[in-house]
Design a protein around this nucleic acid. Structure first.
Lengths: 214, 214
DNA sequence: TTTTGTGAATTGCTTCACAGCA
DNA sequence: TGCTGTGAAGCAATTCACAAAA
């Protein structure tokens, strides 16, 4: 069987950034962009950009650069954002509520269509700025995932419950989890993206402590 | 001149995760942990853990493992979180407000001590759950940074204003920016950590589209 | 000219495997 | 025996540099 060459993980991460910038250029009416310009905008070399984009197949035009509309279509298809997706949220705390109304998700075609929490003080309440969403108890998870064809979840619960909720998500067939809880999720065979907000500040702190910045 | 060996960036990222897990173990009353156990908890090999920790100097005890209290002290010192730090927030929107009350920051010793926004509809208002914080106009930025000895900022403004705000932060002497805006910040000589929430969902989407997950 | 795509060279990270200590 | 620290090997990613296309 012919296997499509794997795209290296660091390259996939950068694809999102290329897309983001090229969408910006498109909004400004730009028609083409060179690897050099794209790199410049993101703090990368042109060679890096070309190598990354070469994974999508031959797409650039020698002497011209890349056509922004072609690039957008191609990268979206690879990332799977050429079509919109339903997403669910578990954890209706401060962070969870902010994420539901985050405009960046909708802009990329991710729609939060269900919210779950097991705290009976919030179950049944609606969310500010998203009044169509009522917080549901976890017991309804399986049902909703099936009915709304949900494959991705945002996990914004306390660290103590994160592992257990992740296992529930996996059991009902969710294939990808964006985890905001400060724990490493184990033994769930999903794609997992972890965002520990405090860890990011910690990383900045490290770089401040060891730098010639300033 | 003798130069301290640089710690590779991927190793520094993992140090935060080691610390997080070892703090958990400490809370459970564990006294020691082996590289194997630590790796197991984070999905890494023991060799990886040992190599990473070897950058901190010889710290483990052959036949025993690592003592959790020693490890905590040592990693915190390297990351610069052995002492607490004042942080400011720019952007009092939904996300910004959620971040101010994020308990994970305080747990790691990061205290949001000032909030700025240039929308006159929010300047002067206080934040739920943090009533001591009044939203200030950007004009007061320089003054506050100096008075409160602030070196790190959280940037939660719309993409359109992010670059300009970042430049202001840099000009008043902020050395590290945690950027939630969906743009790449350029021409500011600060340490920058970027968290584009939509990009993380996009990465999950990619992995779902190309996987044997499930 | 300008700019791509890509092998080759290089750099950097991870894994291996084992000597040495407790 | 159990476990660390670390050179050496292996693997992966980045950068170089240039032929080819417009």
């Amino acid at each position: 069987m012919v296997r499509i060459k794997e795209i290296p993980a660091p390259a996939v991460r950068r694809l999102s950034l290329y897309l983001r910038h090229v969408e910006l250029l498109s909004g400004r009416g730009e028609r083409t962009v060179s690897s050099r310009q794209l790199g410049e905008a993101l703090g990368l070399t042109g060679a890096q950009v070309r190598k990354d984009l070469s994974h999508l197949g031959s797409l650039g035009h020698p002497g011209i650069g890349y056509r922004v509309d072609e690039l957008i279509v191609r990268v979206r298809r690879i990332l799977g954002t050429d079509t919109s997706r339903n997403v669910l949220l578990v954890g209706a705390g401060n962070l969870g509520r902010a994420l539901v109304s985050h405009r960046g998700f909708a802009k990329k075609g991710f729609h939060v269509v269900a919210v779950f929490d097991d705290d009976e003080r919030v179950v049944g309440s609606t969310l500010d700025g998203a009044a169509h969403l009522v917080v549901r108890p976890m017991i309804e998870l399986a049902d909703t995932v099936r009915k709304k064809n949900i494959r991705m979840a945002i996990l914004a619960v306390p660290g103590e419950s994160a592992q257990s909720v992740a296992e529930q998500l996996w059991e009902v067939g969710v294939g990808g989890i964006l985890n905001f809880a400060p724990v490493t999720l184990r033994h769930v065979d999903c794609a997992i993206a972890a965002v520990d907000l405090a860890v990011h500040l910690e990383q900045l702190s490290f770089r401040l402590g060891n730098s010639r910045v300033g």
